[in-house]
Structure formats: structure tokens, C-alpha cells
Simulated scan of single mutants.
Amino acid sequence: MKRVINFWSLLGFISVSAFLATEIAVVAAAVVWGISSLFGLAMVPTIALGILVGVPSLYGMVKATILAFQAETDPENN
């Protein structure tokens, strides 16, 4: 079946993607802040921790965006 791509489905896709990306970014930042504060890490280890947490977070954002596009443009949902 052909995907439904119109203004409203794209608006829903963008809204859901922005919401989920914001939630994932906030949780990632809170994890880095909490761990670095708990262990009293300096700048370089905090940056390394940010990279270790940030890469899976970016993957989660991309995957959530793909799933949001598939859900919002699915013909059975419209």
C-alpha cells in the first residue's frame, strides 16, 4: 500500500519526532550530569561520558524518528 503523505501526517511526524528527541536528550543530559556530579569528574572524563551516553541517544532519536514516520504515514492510521 502507498503511504499517506500530506500536510497533517507530516505535521504529526515532525511533532512526535521533536517531542521524543527532546525527551531522549533531556534524559541523556541528566544521566551525564548525575554521574559526573556523583563521582566528581573533571571536564575530560565528563566529555568522554557524554560521548558514551550521546551516541546511543542519537541512535535512539533516529530510530524513534523512523518509527514515527512509519506510524504517521501508515494508511491504516488515516
Rank of each mutant, 00 (worst) to 15 (best):
34 G>W: 06
33 W>L: 13
67 L>D: 15
41 L>G: 01
70 Q>L: 15
16 V>H: 05
3 R>T: 09
71 A>H: 08
74 D>I: 03
43 M>D: 10
36 S>K: 03
74 D>P: 01
15 S>F: 14
32 V>L: 06
76 E>V: 12
25 A>C: 07
11 L>C: 09
78 N>K: 07
43 M>C: 00
41 L>D: 02
13 F>H: 10
59 Y>T: 05
7 F>T: 13
22 T>P: 00
3 R>C: 05
12 G>R: 10
21 A>H: 05
10 L>E: 15
73 T>L: 09
51 I>E: 00
72 E>A: 12
73 T>Q: 04
13 F>A: 14
65 T>N: 05
27 V>T: 08
65 T>H: 03
21 A>W: 12
67 L>G: 00
50 G>I: 02
30 A>C: 03
58 L>R: 00
16 V>G: 00
52 L>K: 01
67 L>S: 13
23 E>M: 14
51 I>K: 00
38 L>F: 13
72 E>W: 09
31 V>M: 09
19 F>G: 00
60 G>Y: 07
43 M>Q: 07
17 S>F: 12
42 A>T: 06
11 L>Q: 09
37 S>Q: 12
72 E>G: 01
64 A>I: 07
56 P>M: 04
41 L>Y: 09
34 G>K: 07
63 K>T: 06
22 T>L: 14
32 V>Y: 03
58 L>I: 13
30 A>V: 11
45 P>Y: 03
53 V>E: 02
1 M>K: 10
54 G>L: 05
14 I>D: 04
57 S>G: 13
26 V>R: 09
59 Y>L: 14
43 M>L: 15
40 G>C: 08
66 I>L: 14
22 T>E: 08
17 S>W: 14
59 Y>H: 06
23 E>G: 10
